[in-house]
């Protein structure tokens, strides 16, 4: 009896452990504390929620379904949660922002697809399904971003780009410390991130390792984009053309003479062989026709 009970208990514990571990698998996002506490500078209201809904329908609905309708795509592992459920709503705004931004396993990252503002609007839409939610606004003032000036300095010796971020306040120049900085090189379809996301040091700059082998245009120019995200000043974007890439001027892929190219770019041997064979046969045929003409002339006599 006791032993049966023991087995029973073990099974129950085991099942719970498994269930719990599943739970923790879907809960386990490893969100850094400073990200978790991040707040939106956009107020969550009807207007922003509505804007968020449009973004949600386009980017999230195919997997998560409609909030409250439990119609998410069940074939995925892990199954995408219904976002009106407690599992989601119990998270902080910073958590949700982090999850949307970075993605994981089957959840794609929306860091590049959606701007920060758009990501917050999606959260505004998700929060509209939570009646008990009260928003804590961030102290960021987006209008202050205009005061920030970004300066790039390339050091050819060690191939580093130093990015300075300063704000020209009325009271004087303020260095942006602990601001998040991302550096990108513009490519045809999007921005290629250089190095990783850094934060400015106490002197208001960050050093990025620039790759030595990144192709630029014909003269080696590359369009550099800097994204700064500061607690106080919000998002700042800066673009600049730098001559730090490998000059790239590759020939067109249909330049060489080849069997697959156009007639004008056919291999010489084929042109020579083909035309000479045609000429040869044509000449012989003409010769034969001429002898026939002669034959007729002889008969005329």
């Amino acid at each position: 009896m006791i032993s049966t009970n023991k087995i029973y208990t073990t099974i129950v514990i085991a099942v719970f452990t498994v269930l719990l571990s599943f739970q923790s698998y879907s809960q386990n996002w490893d969100i850094p504390a400073n990200k978790s506490s991040k707040n939106s500078y956009i107020p969550f209201n009807n207007e922003t929620a509505k804007a968020g809904e449009a973004i949600y329908t386009k980017n999230c609905q195919s997997c998560h379904g409609n909030p409250g309708k439990a119609n998410s795509l069940k074939t995925l592992k892990p199954v995408p949660p219904d976002l009106s459920e407690k599992q989601t709503q119990s998270r902080t705004d910073g958590d949700l922002f982090y999850i949307i931004t970075t993605g994981r396993v089957v959840m794609p990252s929306f860091k590049i697809v959606l701007s920060e503002e758009e990501r917050w609007k999606v959260i505004a839409f998700i929060r509209s399904y939570n009646k008990s939610y009260v928003q804590v606004l961030s102290k960021t003032d987006p209008s202050k971003s205009k005061l920030v000036k970004i300066v790039l300095d390339f050091n050819a010796k060690n191939n580093k780009i130093r990015v300075y971020a300063k704000a020209n306040e009325a009271s004087g120049v303020v260095l942006l410390k602990d601001a998040e900085i991302m550096l990108f090189a513009n490519r045809y379809f999007g921005k290629l991130q250089i190095d990783k996301t850094l934060t400015t040091n106490s002197e208001g700059y960050a050093d990025f390792n620039f790759p030595k082998d990144l192709p630029g245009d014909k003269t080696g120019n590359i369009d550099i984009v800097v994204n700064v995200n500061d607690e106080l000043y919000g998002e700042i974007e800066h673009q600049e053309k730098l001559n730090i890439g490998i000059p790239t001027d590759k020939p067109a892929l249909n330049e060489q003479r080849a069997i697959w190219n156009t007639l004008l770019k056919a291999p010489i041997w084929i042109i020579v062989t083909y035309t000479s064979l045609i000429l040869l046969v044509t000449l012989v045929l003409l010769y034969i026709l001429n002898t026939l003409r002669k034959l007729k002339k002889i008969g005329d006599k």
């Binding site: 697809v113 490519r187 045809y188 290629l192 082998d213 990144l214």
Partner: peptide
């Protein structure tokens, strides 16, 4: 991923992330 070999960069169609 789709991109330009001359730029040594391709962009993912879903995440829009650009990689070398």
């Amino acid at each position: 991923y789709f991109g330009d070999e001359n730029e040594d960069a391709v962009t993912n169609g879903t995440t829009k992330e650009t990689v070398r």
